[in-house]
Amino acid sequence: MSVKVVLPNAFQKHTDGAREIESKAHNLPELIVDIETTFPALKPHLRDEQGQVRRFINFYVNDEDIRFLGNEKYAFQDGDEVLVIPSIAGGSCSCCSYCGQEDCVCY
């Protein structure tokens, strides 16, 4: 059993330009470990300081957000195509646009 994993452009700097991998992972946690093992340089970028996968990274299985399929519990099927796509936000809120600090003391 294997799934095809399509990586975003943003990852390529850390994957020597690779855009796609085949994985034998059975579910999302296994897949993330597999990606990190294949591309060790990607690991520190994929997870935050607490070791959690960064919240802006989304996973889709055959066009559907994996969170609608059971997220980590979803069992990959042979031939699934998994898309990894970072969220595109442009928001700003607590961070001060002047000093750039979350806890701004400018005023």
């Binding site: 943003a10 970028h45 994929l46 960064r54 802006f56 990274i57 595109i88 442009g90 928001g91 750039g100």
Partner: peptide, 28 residues
């Protein structure tokens, strides 16, 4: 927005280092 890395001005919306959203910061 998350790690503070700057990129100048280019058509890009995702940080290469932490894959978080980029934002325009104006020099007030």
């Amino acid at each position: 927005r998350e790690c503070g890395k700057t990129y100048g001005n280019t058509p890009l919306s995702i940080c290469e280092d932490c894959f978080s959203p980029l934002e325009v910061q104006c020099d007030l």
